[in-house]
Amino acid sequence: MGGPTLKASRFGWLAPPLALAALCGLVPHMVGFNQYYILVATRIAIVASVALSWNIIGGLAGQLDLASSAYLGLGGILAAELMIKYGVTPWIGMLAGAAASAGVAFLIGYPLFRFGIREVWYALSTVALVVVLHELAIVLMGPFDYYVPPVEGWYYLRFRTWENLYYVSLVLLAFVIVVNLWVSRSKLGYYLKAIREDETAAEALGVDVRKYKLLALLIYATLVGFAGYLYVVTQRTYSYKTFSAPFSIYIAVIGIVGGLGSVDGILLAAAMLGMAEEYLRATFGGTLPGLHLLVYGLLLVTVGVLRPEGLATVTRRLLRPVRTRFLGGESA
């Protein structure tokens, strides 16, 4: 008899993410400090952080948000501009970026949720947000690429080699994982899952659907806005193109392929897709542009039509024979 009566120690759930973070901390040593691999690993850690932040609105609350690049771009561009124009350290800039994207999320989300905008209309309004910011940025910033200046050190959070940024990204990722685990174990998490299942039924149980959806959106936008500067640094440039619909879709692809609500599935998906994208781009980028996007498309269709729960079920299925052999008996 497991589940309902079994009670883990109060902070036991923190152990796996911390162990994982420690393991990931060894990656630079494993790749012999090869800068390209460390950069790829850094990007994957940042994208995984964004995807796990998205998991709160998309996976737990079930709202298909396609605006992650809007919050990432707002946070990143604000922090970078503050640093370049006013010499403000990105540590403060990232907090400002987080606040700015939370502010925009509130402006968008409050009226939408107030009027019960959901499902397709919610997804479309997040697409619209990215389109508006993309085209607004062309007007305000011009069609140019801006470079993060070659300043170095912890004050600027930019280094000659990538290890330090990688460690910073790992800390961010660990933090986002802890937030995810905490949310899904809290009242908020149960309410978000109930909203995802059936808003009307959740409301009848006393769930203030608007409030909790807005809360989920704000947590997500804050975390993504905070990560923005790290993303800009790994991209080396920023521009109107940072507000990118394909990037936002990529984040949702990771969430869906990994399995909505599943932290380990999303981590796995972020790592696999990240490496696959690097490989496909490096190998076929010149001859077959868009191959990686084609692969995402096929993945979405396959996962959506055949395996609605994503990699989470795949890993469970793969592990099942092992579990049966060593633990005896089939668990549901």
Binding site: K187, Y190, E197
Partner: peptide, 27 residues
Amino acid sequence: RPFAKMTVLEAVMAGALLRTGDVEEAR
């Protein structure tokens, strides 16, 4: 209107959480 992906216990906990913020108590 079932909560298809939540377990039976979780679904009932979602109801119980109206009167408490403590998940263990709700359980």
